[in-house]
Design a protein around this nucleic acid. Structure first.
Lengths: 133, 133
DNA sequence: GGGCTGCTTGACGCGAACGTAAGCGGGACG
DNA sequence: CGTCCCGCTTACGTTCGCGTCAAGCAGCCC
């Protein structure tokens, strides 16, 4: 049962707001593995799932290489202990990164909110330079 | 009352685990503004506070330019309405980014945890390739 | 004065993550 | 049949965030 829901590179680009160059680049870096129908690439559900994870990882500041390593944990992939263990290790590190970042982000948000509130105060009491130039 | 707690570039590098090149680069991009004593740079509390924010922002995946804009909100800086309003606008956008990222990060963490648990299961039931090569 | 150390200003280099342009092949359409 | 329009590959260009010399000055010690 092959995944019928195959998409061309253009459909992928429209769906995920990326360029063909980006998809080919990710493929060259071995983050996604579209099939080939003749010369053309065809992307299935698995490729899309991986792309979503890649793009999300990027927003968190992870590199493509970090995501490539991490993606292995989202696949059945290797079936021997050493390989699974290695993947697990990478996954746990990445998880720790993300939890640190989560906590830090909470602090940063609260601080920024405070400074925004302060700025709103300043705005309210500031002289109106459009009148009192 | 000048801030007496001034630090040399080397002290800064040791304190924040960055290189002189990095500090000079941030200065060139107008993210920090150390004083000059003769030829030498001297960094005060304000510079250190900004540096902390810059480094934290980097970990969240923000660019130096984004941080430069955002840093204005952490300073009294401009005192006319239009300038404060502009800074506020940037700050609110950044805040929205961070809150989106915060929520997304929560999801990503939960997903990753699940996949790690799955991998642990596989590890437990996998054949031991060191014996059954 | 000679040498060392620390900081300075260029200027060039580099890896990551693409952008962009050139040129080829293959359906589709009038 | 010509000519679009895709998509493909190859290859060079670009931006960001620094790294890495290179050369020069300033202070200090002997």
């Amino acid at each position: 049962m092959p995944n019928d829901d195959l998409m061309t590179i253009r459909e992928m680009c429209d769906a995920f707001d990326v360029t063909p160059r980006t998809l080919r680049f990710y493929e060259a870096r071995e983050l996604i593995f579209p099939e080939r129908r003749g010369q053309h690439r065809l992307y299935d559900r698995r490729d899309r799932a991986r792309l979503i994870l890649i793009l999300r990882g990027k927003r968190f500041g992870f590199s493509l290489e970090q995501m490539r390593q991490l993606l292995e944990i989202y696949e059945p992939g290797g079936c021997n202990r050493t390989q699974i263990a290695a993947t697990l290790s990478v996954g746990r590190e990445r998880l720790a990164d993300m939890e640190r970042q989560y906590a830090e982000l909470r602090e940063a948000i609260d601080e920024l909110k405070q400074h925004i509130a302060d700025a709103e105060q300043r705005l309210a009491t500031a002289q109106d330079d459009t009148k009192t130039g």
